[in-house]
Simulated assay, not measured.
Amino acid sequence: MKFLKLLFFVFCFTVFTSFTAHKFYVSITKIEYVKEKQSIQIITQLFTDDLEDALSERYGKDVHLDSSKETKADVALFEKYLLSKLTILVNGNPVKYNFIGHKYDIDQVKAYIEITGIEAVNSMEIENTILMDKFENQQNIIHFKTGTSRKSLVLDKENPKGLLKFE
């Protein structure tokens, strides 16, 4: 009887460990043009642990976010990284970002960015390479919304850039 239990355990262990765990690497960036304020408001949502790993590797130091170990230097590295990995051209012109701040939500971090002084959006070119240097399968989903239009892009390592046109 013990032999059958052992055989059953070995069989189950082999079956269950033969499946490989696969983690899905994704960020979501919501962009909204608010005509009344002549501003583009951006919210980028990332998994905190993935971001910590990327920042630690890139800057060669342990980075801690959303914990008692978080420092102002960690947040500064997060802002620096985020703004270096996100490039937006509005109507063919580069724009200046204002990093508004961030907040944590369970296992994710949301970063808030604003672009001001935008009278109209006829086109938007977006390059989002956030976490692509760390994770080969990273996908960055972009949702853009104006008062009358909604468009989306899925960017990855092979296609990190997209163009949205509005009429």
Rank of each mutant, 00 (worst) to 15 (best):
G101F: 02
V15T: 00
K69G: 03
Q139D: 13
D105V: 14
I142E: 01
K2E: 09
K85N: 10
K134M: 03
S149W: 11
Y81F: 11
N140Y: 01
T48F: 06
E36I: 02
F8R: 09
L82M: 13
I100E: 10
R58V: 04
A54M: 08
D66T: 08
F99P: 06
F135G: 06
Y59Q: 07
I113A: 01
D50Y: 09
V121H: 00
T71G: 07
K80C: 05
K61F: 00
F8H: 07
G92L: 03
S56P: 08
R58M: 08
S68C: 05
T87L: 09
A54L: 07
V34P: 00
T87I: 04
F3K: 15
D74I: 04
T116K: 15
V75R: 05
E57G: 12
S68E: 14
K145I: 07
K5M: 12
I118Y: 00
K61L: 10
C12A: 15
F166E: 04
A76P: 06
K61E: 10
D53K: 15
E36V: 00
D74K: 13
E79K: 15
S18Y: 01
E52V: 09
K30A: 09
H102T: 08
L153S: 03
P160Q: 09
G162D: 07
G117D: 01
R58F: 02
A54N: 10
P94Q: 04
I40G: 00
F24E: 13
Q45G: 06
G117Q: 04
K103M: 11
S123K: 01
A21Y: 11
A111K: 08
N137G: 10
V154H: 07
D62M: 08
C12L: 15
K103Y: 11
K80D: 12
I141F: 13
K103D: 13
H64N: 13
E79R: 15
E70Q: 15
N93T: 08
L153T: 04
L83H: 07
K5F: 12
K151A: 07
E158Y: 13
T146W: 00
E70R: 10
I88D: 01
E127G: 04
I28W: 07
F99E: 06
S84R: 15
F19Q: 03
N91S: 01
D62A: 12
G101K: 10
D107Q: 14
S18P: 02
K2Q: 12
K134V: 00
P160L: 02
K30I: 04
E119I: 01
K35P: 02
L86I: 02
F13H: 00
K161C: 06
F47R: 06
E125P: 08
S68P: 08
K165N: 14
S84Y: 09
T20E: 12
E52M: 15
F11N: 12
R150E: 11
A73C: 07
K37F: 06
D66E: 14
K157Q: 09
I40C: 04
D50K: 11
D62P: 03
L89K: 15
N140M: 02
G162E: 05
K37N: 12
E125H: 12
K134P: 02
K161V: 07
A21S: 12
K96A: 05
Q108Y: 13
K134I: 03
F24V: 09
